[in-house]
Computed example of a mutant assay.
Amino acid sequence: MKKTILALSLAAAMPTFAADYTDGDTHKNDYKWMQANLMYSIDEMPRIKGADENDHDYLELEFGGRAGVLDYYGYIDTFNLLNSNDSDKGDGASKMFMKLAPRFSIDGLTGTDLSVGPIKELYFATLFNIGGGSIDTNNGGTGDVNNAFVGLGSDIMVPWLGKIGFNIYGLYDVNKKDWNGYQVSTNWFKPFYFFENGSFISYQGYIDYQFGMKDEYSTSSNGGAMFNGIYWHSDRFSVGYGLKAYKDVYGLKDGVNFGFGEFETTGFSHYIAATYKF
């Protein structure tokens, strides 16, 4: 299998064994990858019930890797590339969203093997969500997101999927300058069918679930989303489809009305992606 395919799947495949840094070499597992995803989203939530414009295109620059004790992942989205008036990312909506998820290996920082059973490595985990403004401020919405998450992360081996990331955070809303509940997140990348030319099909996705959110900031105390993607990968390209399931996402109760429309926050959306790997 070619080098760029290995780089993409390395995060899922490498830590079959404990990440042992007792020899002091924290850089022995370093790697990095970056890719550009041309995406199209259909019926993304939250959305105003009955609205005609629930779809949009976007370009995503996605990257990740390992550098010593730092395990990192992130992406930057640019919405509505053709500035279509028929897009839900038209006038008044934010054009960009950024997610950064750096984690710092506690094993590496302490030079200690902290693995126990299926738990292969522990992290001080952080997550930052910035931008995206899914609610139009011209209509009384809340504008861009600015959330910071802090907590404990891990790499865990599970049957069939292999290594998954599992993190639990406390959520600090930077706009409101207050803590607002917790989030559990997990992600996976599982190649499961290989072709003779080295390309493969993968099942990849994530779960983000929030709970314990305050009544003063949320209309539901819990909610989240699960993304399920089936992708074909070669050394330089991939194409895929993703089904995303929502339940009171972002703490918005399904059917809530802020005075400019009833919101749908529970249901399904669809994503189509074409990728070039650098």
Score class of each variant (00 low, 15 high):
L59V: 12
T22I: 02
F63I: 09
F200H: 02
N180K: 05
F258G: 05
V145Q: 03
V256L: 11
N197E: 12
Y182G: 03
I272G: 10
K89M: 07
A101Q: 01
K89E: 09
P118C: 11
D178N: 06
Y203T: 12
N37K: 13
I230S: 05
P159W: 03
Y73Q: 05
G229M: 14
A225Y: 04
S41P: 02
N139H: 04
P102H: 08
K99R: 12
Y193D: 04
D248R: 08
I48M: 00
G90I: 05
W160G: 08
N228S: 11
N129R: 13
K176I: 01
D136Q: 10
E60F: 05
N85V: 10
Y209S: 05
F258R: 00
N175F: 12
A13K: 15
G108R: 07
K277E: 04
N146L: 12
M157E: 07
L70T: 09
N54T: 12
D88F: 09
S134C: 09
A36Y: 08
I230K: 05
G198K: 15
S115R: 05
K28D: 09
I42D: 07
G223M: 01
F149L: 11
G259P: 07
L61D: 08
F97A: 08
S218F: 10
I230F: 09
F128E: 08
F189H: 09
D77R: 11
G140H: 08
D144Y: 07
F97P: 00
G68H: 13
L81H: 01
E121C: 07
Q204A: 10
K277Y: 03
E264K: 10
V174C: 11
A101D: 06
D55P: 09
D113Y: 05
Y250M: 06
T265R: 02
D23W: 09
Y203V: 10
V145L: 11
A125N: 01
N85P: 04
G170W: 07
P191T: 12
S115W: 00
G68I: 06
L38R: 11
T126I: 10
